[in-house]
Design a protein around this nucleic acid. Structure first.
Lengths: 147, 147
DNA sequence: CATACAATTGAGAATATTTCTCAATTGCGA
DNA sequence: TCGCAATTGAGAAATATTCTCAATTGTATG
C-alpha cells in the first residue's frame, strides 16, 4: 500500500505528518481539515468556525485560527484571498497547482498547467529581479452557478 | 496633445477622471495617489497614512481608507496581497499587466507578458468554469536587495 | 497501561484593523 | 460669490486577529 501525498492522506499519514514536527494530532486540528475537505471550497474563518463547532462543540475561535496556522505550516491547507479582500482557506492541492474559484459559491478546482515556468526565467533575465515564486488564482462562474 | 491613460496622468487628466464621476478632486485624495507614485512600491495602509500626513498634516486615517477605496474604484490604484497576508496598495499600471514584487523592499515592476489569455480559454473548456478574470503576482528579490 | 511532561486548548482580555457617525469644512457648478 | 452636495476629521463602533494563562490532553516512556 503506497502513501499518497496531498489531498488524499488517510489518518495514518496525517498522524505521521504531525508527528514529524512534534506536533500533536488533535481532534480540533483534524476537524478544521475535515471541514475544508468536505466543503471543497474556500471557507472564511467564520464559516470554518461554524462548521468546526458542529463537529466538535466547544471549540474556540482562537483554536481555529491556531489550527489553520499550523495546518498551513504543514502544507496541508493554503490561505487565499478572495476578490472582496477577505481571507479564506482551502485544502492544499497535490503538487504545483493553481485554483479556479467560483465567485458565486467559492468552490475550488485546481489545475496543473502552470504557465509560469519559462516566463519566470525570462522575466528574471529581463528585469533583474530573481523570481522566487508566484501567486496565481483564476476566478469564474461554475456550471451550477450559471444555471 | 494626447491624453495618456494609466500611470501618467497629469493633474488636468486627474481632475477630469474625478469629475467624470462627480467626485471631488481633493488634496487628500491627490496626496494618497502622490505617495504611491513617489514610492513605486506596495505600501501598507499605515505606511501610506504616515506619508500622507507628512504631505498634508491633519489628514485622518479614515480619510486614507476612503481615498483608497475611491481611487480603486476609479482604477487609479490596485489593492494587493503580500505574502504575509497584509493588504497593500500600488498605483494601477497601464493596460493589462502583472506585478513583480520585491519581497525585501516591496518595490513593484509591472510586466505585460500575461500568459493567461489562451490558457483561460482552454481551462474554461476543460473545467466548465467560465473564467472571468485572474490574479497573478510574482515575488522575487531585486538587484539592490540582493547586494 | 499508568505516568510525566510538553503541547494544546478555551475563555476572555488585549490589539489591530476597518468602518461608521456626524458636525464642520470645502470643492465646484451656477 | 453663493449654495449645496461631497468630503473630511475625530472618535466611537464594529470586526478581525492575537495574546495570556490556567486547565486539559496527546504521546513518549517505562
Amino acid at each position: 500500500m503506497k502513501t499518497k501525498p496531498g489531498r488524499t492522506q488517510n489518518s495514518e499519514d496525517l498522524r505521521a505528518i504531525f508527528h514529524a514536527k512534534r506536533l500533536k494530532c488533535t481532534p480540533q486540528r483534524l476537524a478544521v481539515l475535515k471541514a475544508l475537505k468536505e466543503s471543497g471550497a474556500y471557507l472564511s474563518i467564520n464559516m470554518l468556525d461554524r462548521k468546526v463547532k458542529e463537529m466538535l462543540p466547544g471549540t474556540g475561535l482562537a483554536t481555529v485560527y491556531r489550527a489553520l496556522e499550523t495546518l498551513e505550516e504543514l502544507g496541508l491547507v493554503v490561505k487565499v484571498h478572495l476578490e472582496d479582500g477577505c481571507h479564506s482557506y482551502a485544502v492544499a492541492p497535490e503538487g504545483h497547482m493553481h485554483p479556479i474559484v467560483c465567485t458565486e459559491c467559492n468552490k475550488v478546482i485546481d489545475f496543473a498547467e502552470c504557465p509560469l515556468g519559462e516566463l519566470s526565467e525570462k522575466l528574471t533575465h529581463d528585469t533583474g529581479i530573481e523570481i522566487q515564486n508566484h501567486f496565481l488564482q483564476l476566478f469564474g462562474k461554475c456550471r451550477d452557478c450559471r444555471a
